[in-house]
């Protein structure tokens, strides 16, 4: 609206009678439009509104209804879905599994990702061969869809002699391990598969962070007498602080919302041993057809994610980096 008003007033000032006058006027219009922040923000604003804000609003509205996939009628039940959700044993079980899965994912993905990134960075700085190959291999885990990774792991962990891992263990003289049917081992299997996949992401983030650390800092630290551990502690880690922050937040968000890999690998089983919040939401929607309940679960999951992220902002003092 502001843009339009300016265009009109500019047009009134210029005399568009001559050809060059018209060109000048058009040029002025274009300049006045493109020099406004709104012009450049508009595409992103539209995109976010249509594809993100509106769905969030719609999910929130749905969570207040008894919307179902098997009937076209719906009525507002207001907080009934939330009352049922928070009162159910299942919710706390999935919350526990999600928490465990997320904490383990964060620790493993950050630890393994940083370790791999350090190894690659070391190789690159020393001019060794192999960093590119390692990077490609690790990254390939990242580009394969989670559902396929879930299936691959499922095949590997089959609880017969056909399963790759059980077959190998059998050759070493071990019995069949119930990777997916024992409640506790299944959780470990899911965490392992998730970490295997997610490590690639944190590795590439950490590697990018490490590349930013000037070589001179390491040289100065060597002259100052810092050994490899001290250099890591006093140079590398502080320089990676902002990357650690970003990776932690993103890995947390991904883990809290994990769905595809677990869906393919265990489908939440055995029992509900590996059922995370996102999976229970899916089951509410497409097994029980309770869209209202599924929407309420989604809203709670969003709240959990927001709260955890807010806690991170408090814990990490990254005001300098931002």
């Amino acid at each position: 609206m502001t843009v339009m008003l300016t265009m009109t007033s500019d047009a009134a000032i210029d005399d568009p009678s001559s050809g060059s006058g018209i060109r000048r006027t058009v040029g002025t219009y274009v300049d006045s439009v493109v020099s406004r922040p709104l012009f450049w923000l508009l595409p992103a604003l539209l995109f976010i509104t249509v594809f993100q804000l509106y769905p969030v609003f719609e999910v929130f509205r749905m969570s207040l209804t008894d919307m179902s996939l098997i009937t076209s009628e719906e009525s507002y039940v207001w907080l009934e879905n939330y009352r049922r959700l928070l009162g159910s044993e299942r919710f706390y079980s999935t919350l526990r599994v999600t928490g465990l899965y997320s904490i383990a994912s964060i620790i493993l993905q950050i630890g393994l990702g940083l370790g791999l990134a350090l190894a690659i960075d070391y190789g690159v700085r020393r001019g060794l061969r192999g960093p590119l190959f390692t990077r490609v291999v690790v990254l390939s885990a990242w580009i394969v869809p989670g559902i396929i990774i879930g299936l691959v792991w499922k095949i590997m962990l089959l609880e017969t002699n056909v399963g790759v891992v059980n077959n190998a263990l059998g050759r070493l003289g071990f019995g069949i391990v119930p990777f997916l049917s024992d409640a506790q081992i299944a959780v470990v299997s899911v965490i392992t598969a998730g970490a295997w996949r997610g490590t690639a992401f944190s590795m590439i983030m950490f590697y990018a962070g490490l590349k930013r650390v000037p070589d001179e800092l390491y040289r100065a630290a060597k002259i100052d007498g810092a050994g490899p551990l001290a250099r890591f502690r006093y140079v590398t880690l502080p320089q990676l602080k902002s990357v650690v922050f970003v990776v932690t937040i993103l890995v947390t968000i991904y883990s809290l919302n994990s769905f595809d890999l677990i869906f393919a690998l265990t489908n939440g089983g055995p029992g509900r041993a590996t059922e995370v919040i996102a999976l229970s939401m899916y089951k509410s929607a497409f097994n029980s057809y309770e869209m209202g309940m599924a929407a309420a679960t989604a809203v709670v999951l969003l709240m959990v994610t927001l709260v955890v992220t807010a806690v991170y902002f408090r814990l990490f003092d990254i005001s300098e980096e931002i």
Partner: peptide, 10 residues
């Protein structure tokens, strides 16, 4: 060093 190489976080 030429670029000072001061530890930026200290």
């Amino acid at each position: 060093f030429q670029n000072y190489a001061l530890y930026p976080h200290m």
